[in-house]
Design a binder for these strands. Structure first.
Lengths: 243, 243
DNA sequence: GGCATTTTCGAGTCAAGCTCAATAAGGAAC
DNA sequence: GTTCCTTATTGAGCTTGACTCGAAAATGCC
């Protein structure tokens, strides 16, 4: 009776262990050789199983890659949340700096996976990390930003997605530049200034305004944005009309 | 004797025409199916040549892709330079806006190639667009920025690479977001606000300090012209509506 | 025309993702 | 322990697609 209760448990554990072994091996091989360069035979060998066995766990190389990528993004999200949770300071800009530092070094470290995430998204519709996974990752920023607004540290009329684009976009572009100069150049670009400049930018652009001039400017800008949006909606409507 | 002088010319022209046919076919197939999905046989068929002939022009599929990519980036550079040359206005921020608008729509349009450029850079060392090609493209921004500084429109202590990271990084990230919401979402993000916010950011962060009033006036002027434009669009649509 | 060189070609080779029939392992009933 | 059924594993083979190569066609030169 005891064996009956335990066996199905150990059996499932055995399968899960094997699945984890496949994923671990796959991740390593994908990191080393990229998607095309990775050989299913090598993944099988590293996981100490037959090549055909992989296909009873994953339908194809593409699905295996997709699982690895999603696991990767989930890991990033957890780490980013941990950075926020363990942050000693409480102010918005200090926390933003910690997040920027984490994101920048992560993007440099894992440039392969991040590039592959978006490169494979279009052409290989099978290997397309869901929007939800990516949104879940950037939600760390969104939450921080909204909290900053609630506490009055940030302008209330700041538009979240614009700030998000600037934050993640600039950091990723900088990461690519840093990475590209790493191999050869003598004058390596450093990570520190990139993060500092980002925080400085947010301070001057999004900090709660104290004088009327800046507020007026903000009002004008947001008004202008809204006009553009209206105009484009109008265009879209026009195109939909017959003739 | 005349034929002797002409023949080698037409012969070379023939080869060049064939090479262009291969590149054009390759570009089309790569755009449609991506790097892996592209079949050399289909490229050969579209170029109306035998499959083996391709390999007397390009050593491998990878080298063919590399040539297509470099041609693509060269084309982008020329277009960006043309946008700057044909720009009616002369002020830094107006020109920057034109460049931002061009870059954003280009990145959305050609997301595949841009992603592939960086995805293939690492893993497939053969298919690695040279740094010079990419640097040549961003040089358009660099030149504009330096000129803005020389004319006193921009702060002299502004750091070029920081501004460049913000400009291209944010636009590319926004392009990806816009593209990701295009397929399914009802509430499509529009291009206009992204560009406007970018210009507004540069105005407040990089503009020379003394002309705050003038920039406000510029903002008002652009607002006014946008209103006029909207009004015209409305009239045009009204005329088209039945009754 | 005749020889030399270049260009084109596609059938054949090879490598890699994937299939499947055979085998092994696991467990339930007696 | 044996039998029988279900499930998991396997690697030899199938398929596909990039690439090779020897032969043939085209071109150049006299």
């Amino acid at each position: 009776m005891a064996t009956k209760a335990v066996n199905p448990e150990t059996q499932r554990a055995k399968l899960e262990r094997k699945e984890r072994a496949i994923l671990e091996a796959a991740r390593g091989v994908f990191v080393e050789h990229g998607f095309d360069g990775a050989r299913m035979s090598e993944i099988a060998r590293r996981a100490s199983i037959g090549e055909g066995t992989i296909y009873s766990y994953y339908e194809s190389k593409a699905e295996l890659m997709l699982t690895v990528l999603q696991q990767f993004w989930d890991g990033l999200t957890l780490e980013a949340e941990a950075v926020m949770a363990s942050s000693q300071v409480d102010g918005f800009f200090e926390r933003l700096q910690a997040l920027a530092q984490y994101h920048l070094s992560t993007v440099i470290e894992n440039a392969d996976f991040i590039n592959l995430t978006f490169a494979l998204r279009r052409n290989n519709s099978e290997v397309s990390v869901s929007r939800d996974h990516l949104r879940h990752y950037v939600a760390v920023f969104d939450q921080l930003f909204r909290r900053g607004q609630d506490r009055g540290e940030l302008r209330r009329d700041a538009v979240l997605w614009q700030a998000r684009d600037i934050f993640y976009g600039t950091l990723e572009y900088s990461a690519r530049s840093i990475e590209m100069t790493m191999d050869t150049d003598r004058t390596e670009r450093q990570q520190g200034p990139v993060v500092d400049e980002m925080i400085s930018l947010f301070r001057s652009h999004y900090a709660a305004a104290h004088d009327a001039v800046e507020t007026d400017r903000a009002t004008l800008d947001s008004l202008s944005s809204k006009l553009d949006q209206l105009s484009e909606q109008f265009d879209a409507l026009s195109r939909r009309l017959p003739q």
